[in-house]
Design a protein around this nucleic acid. Structure first.
Length: 334
DNA sequence: AACGCGGGGAG
DNA sequence: CTCCCAGCGTT
């Protein structure tokens, strides 16, 4: 038995004693429902298990099958996604459901090449779906795996995903693909963490080069772009019926397809009216910038923008809003 | 290869 | 505050 195979076996053995429980997870082989695997994998992209749990449960209750998702309106899909971020994922997941119904007989493919053709499914998701749904010996590479592998082999220089992938291939368990994929991600999430790793509990401690050299917390090397600050305005426009003006964002770019009160990150209001300044500001941090918005209040009856409309505040729940806009809604409610 | 794209939990 | 998480699509 090779050194890699021993590592692989020991990790799976560790997993059977320490596996985290999740609503979409099956321990001990393939998941019986690839649809649930697919939905959970897309939801989990760049997000944490804790965040996804409640979204997943509500989603499965409303969209229990590929067909139910394909038949739904994108607006309702976004309602179930609001607050989860990266809204293109919701659009792609909906597109993908329709493709699956129309061209794949509502069956999630079990070949990598086919999966990669589908909207929103890239190298990671394809591998994970194959591993979790069909118990294939797929080499999954996510943020956890990059960290675990880079440390195991003590790689101090910046490294590409392809290099990690090649190093990870020999470690991939050949007969327990599903559990191995879960295991290496659990290891990264609970033991081999970004900061203060729990090396004493690690099944790979003896073989880990970073641990041997005492440089665990210096790996992997990551560069961080600095965040900018913006001070802008959000326009809360009420008409004589007490309704508020909202509009829909475009289907590309930031917060695509969601609804909003008109806002700008520039230091100039969007409209040349005489605004009343709100007292409480709204702060929110995106991936690439910090934002503080000063609320501007106005009573107005005509349409400030095309493609917008006035709605009663009791109707806000019918429209998908970003977390930033939820903060504005909370301000209005108070 | 680099960048845009959310939000929140942990420390 | 900082860090970064079960990435993908576009350029």
């Amino acid at each position: 038995m090779s050194k890699e195979q021993k590592l692989s076996d020991s990790l799976v053995a560790w997993f059977y004693k320490n596996a985290r429980k999740m609503p979409w997870r099956v321990i001990g082989g393939a998941h019986p429902n690839p649809y649930e695997v697919w939905i959970s994998e897309i939801m989990l992209q760049q997000t944490t298990v804790k965040t996804v749990e409640s979204y997943f449960l509500k989603w499965i209750k409303r969209f229990p099958t590929i067909e139910s998702l394909a038949n739904a309106d994108i607006e309702e899909v976004l309602l179930y996604w609001q607050g989860l971020g990266y809204y293109t994922r919701a659009r792609k997941i909906h597109e993908c459901a329709k493709v699956l119904v129309e061209k794949y007989n509502s069956i999630i493919p079990s070949e990598r090449e086919e999966l990669l053709k589908l909207p929103g499914i890239g190298p990671y998701s394809a591998s994970s779906i194959l591993a979790f749904s069909y118990n294939k010996p797929e080499t999954v590479v996510d943020g956890n795996v990059i960290r675990v592998i880079a440390r195991l082999y003590g790689i101090e220089k910046p490294i590409t995903k392809d290099e990690i992938y090649n190093l990870a291939i020999p470690l991939t368990h050949q007969t327990h693909g599903a559990d191995y994929a879960s295991a290496i991600m659990d290891l990264g999430a609970t033991i081999c963490t970004p900061q203060k790793a729990s090396c004493l509990l690690c099944p790979w401690q003896k073989e880990c080069l970073a641990h041997k050299k005492g440089i665990v917390d210096k790996i992997p090397q990551i560069k961080k772009p600095e965040k900018k600050y913006f001070n802008g305005f959000v326009h809360i426009i009420k008409n004589k019926d007490g309704k508020y003006f909202i509009q829909k964002r475009t289907e590309k770019g930031l917060l695509n397809g969601l609804y909003e009160f008109p806002w700008t990150k520039e230091e100039k209001p969007l409209f040349k009216d005489k605004w009343e300044y709100g007292s409480k500001k709204i702060s929110h941090t995106f991936t690439h910038f910090h934002l503080t918005l000063t609320p501007l209040l106005l009573l107005k009856n005509d349409m400030p923008q095309k493609d917008g409309f006035y709605v009663d505040k009791n109707e806000f729940k019918q429209y998908p809003f970003s977390t930033l806009m939820k903060k504005v809604i909370k301000l209005i409610a108070d």
